[in-house]
Design a protein around this nucleic acid. Structure first.
Length: 556
RNA sequence: UGGGAUAUCGCCAAGCGGUAAGGCAGCGGGUUUUGAUCUCGCCAUUCGUAGGUUCAAAUCCUACUAUCCCAGCCA
């Protein structure tokens, strides 16, 4: 088993250790704060594992807070999906679910406080004018003509905003900070805007909504968050985070720390781009097994433990990074190798007839569910005269490196007998249609007495007792390692990201539970999708292949 | 001379003045009724570059270079 008791070390945990040691804090309180405007992906998992992991290891608390300050982009369906994903990943938030919208009354009060202190003003400039006055990265901004309105008048205007007396865009509330600041976010940032939008939590109570920078720090303070962890692009915003808390009457002083987001090769990680894949029908939906979403990974057969392990292995730093898919795959292989029962399935079937067996022969062989773990028990496997083997496991002739079935040579059928290929039939195009073999009935569970060796071991499924199944093999969604950098994402989509096989599965697999992983021996890990195709066949999704040193060698 | 960050093996990533952890990938050997697993071994005289301080530098100083982020009434 992986080192479950090994705690990650990273710069954030170092800070926490120091804060705990110095007495700055005597416990930790973190939070995972998604905006409910899309589905969670593996990048969010990094944040979830970081925040909830700290709570677990330091016996602290971790909140789930929906950062729901923009009703136009958000939806209750997303909040439900996010809750489900967090739980599925194996985490439970402390206390009730939090919503930034829970604090709208308090937030409003703090806004009035800033106005009364002369630190905020209602600006009637147009959006375009505000943009012009903000200046550029190298040139300072200029003050708004509304910047020096007196507090009483601002207060009245702000209340009128709240009471719906202005139209959307007619005015907004801005913090009065410094139009010459080198931090663009400090050039009198807008902190409240008018939106006559229905909110999934507060309904139609409000027509003004606070902006992220004003809301987040106050929400953290209200919830007594000690360490507010977010991604690198908010580094500049930390100045505004601190400015707000410095200028309102609130006791708690949370601190923000930023870490780099996760990038994964051959996929995209922004909600906008993932959304495009869905709406343009490049994938089946948010839970398409090719998607890097939590829902997609789940349907692909990834386990919560494997995703947690991945998030621990990649670490937490401030360095820009792009992690190889192999890292993720190694984590799920490690889990499934240990925990997935073995089974047999044939993806690209070719018929094989065992000539020295009676037509109606059905022999129920005992096959262990795991080669290295007897406690996982065994299942029965029907051995019959006609079976299917993998098309690539037979060649009429081959060199010595080919450890599979060749005419005149013997291989072992996995969990069964030695067979020897005698001849094969072909169709008019030269494609092999049937292989004829004989089997050695003395070789079940043992080697032949005369010391003969098999060239290899191949998997098989009974042609008469096995069941048809649709088996979906997935590959990377894109052909380039950084599709996010492309102008036209659609142009670099991998046309072979989904390959559907019509294969056969051993009868026992009919009892497979949805999303529970099996190893199809010699092929990889697969799970039942939970759905059947139009022909009523079970659909299996390939999670990941086995490591394949043979394929590597062949491609050399 | 806008500002904020970051640079350690192909990919992640420890290291915090005492002489380069670990994981993934890769390579080679052994075991094996999965070309899987397991197992054993190999894999940075070097830490973006160039100087400097020091008995000693990836770690301190200086100057460069490269990359990322910031001009939403998005988060």
């Amino acid at each position: 088993m992986a080192d479950t008791d090994a705690r990650p070390t990273n710069f954030i945990r170092n800070i926490i250790d120091a804060d705990l040691a110095s007495g700055k804090h005597n416990s930790t309180h973190t939070r995972f704060p998604p905006e409910p405007n899309g589905f969670l992906h593996i990048g969010h998992a990094k944040s979830i594992v970081l925040n909830f992991g700290i709570a677990q290891d330091y016996e602290g608390l971790c909140n789930l807070r929906f950062d729901d300050t923009n009703p136009e982009k958000e939806d209750i369906d997303y909040v439900n999906a996010i809750k489900e994903d967090v739980n599925w990943l194996g985490y439970q938030w402390d206390g009730d679910i939090c919503y930034s919208s829970n604090y709208f009354d308090q937030l409003y009060g703090y806004a009035e406080e800033l106005i009364n202190k002369g630190l905020a003003y209602v600006d009637f400039s147009s959006q375009e004018e505000i943009r012009q006055m903000r200046g550029t990265l190298k040139a300072p901004g200029t003050n708004s003509p509304y910047r020096d309105t007196d507090a009483d008048e601002n207060l009245q205007h702000f209340r009128d905003m709240r009471d719906g007396k202005f139209k959307e865009g007619e005015c907004c509330l801005r913090a009065k900070i410094d139009m010459k600041s080198s931090f663009m976010c400090m050039r009198d940032p807008v902190i409240y805007r008018i939106r006559f939008a229905h909110h999934h939590q507060t309904g139609d109570k409000w027509c003004i909504y606070p902006m992220y920078d004003f809301t987040h720090c106050i929400s953290d303070a209200i919830e007594n968050i000690t360490h507010s962890l977010c991604t690198l692009e908010f580094q500049d915003n930390r100045r505004l985070y601190d400015w707000v808390l410095d200028n309102i009457s609130i006791e708690a002083r949370p601190h923000q720390y930023e870490f780099s987001r996760l990038n994964l090769e051959y996929t995209v990680m922004s909600k906008r781009k993932l959304n495009t894949l869905v709406t343009d029908n490049h994938v089946e939906g948010w839970d398409d097994p090719r998607m890097p979403t939590i829902a997609g990974l789940k349907r692909r057969g990834y386990t919560p433990g494997s995703i947690q392990e991945f998030c621990k292995r990649i670490g937490v730093t401030k360095m820009e990074n792009t992690v190889e898919m192999g890292m993720l795959e190694a984590c799920i292989r490690e889990d499934l190798n240990e925990n997935a029962p073995r089974a047999m399935a044939v993806l690209d079937p070719i018929k094989l007839v065992i000539e020295n067996l009676p037509d109606d022969h059905v022999e129920w062989l005992d096959a262990p569910n795991h080669p290295n773990d007897e406690s996982m028990g065994s299942r029965k496997l029907p051995f019959t005269k006609e079976i299917f083997i993998e098309r690539e496991d037979f060649r009429e002739e081959a060199n010595k490196k080919y450890k599979r079935l060749v005419i005149g040579k013997e291989v072992r059928l996995r969990n069964a007998y030695f067979i020897k290929a005698e001849r094969c039939d072909k169709d008019e195009n030269g494609n092999i249609t049937t292989i004829y073999c004989t089997y050695d009935d003395t070789t079940l569970g043992k080697l032949p007495a005369d010391g003969r060796k098999a060239k290899g071991v191949i998997h098989w499924v009974s042609a008469t007792e096995g069941k048809k199944a649709e088996i979906r093999a997935y590959d990377r969604l894109f052909t380039v390692s950084n599709p996010g950098a492309e102008d036209d994402m659609a142009a670099v989509l991998n046309p072979e990201s989904l390959v559907i096989h019509k294969g056969y599965i051993e009868p026992n697999l009919e009892n497979a539970e949805a999303l529970v992983g099996y190893q199809f021996e010699r092929l990889g890990y697969f799970c039942f999708d939970g759905k059947r195709n139009d022909e009523g066949e079970m659909i299996f999704n390939k999670t990941v292949g086995l490591r394949d040193s043979w394929a590597k060698q062949e491609n050399k």
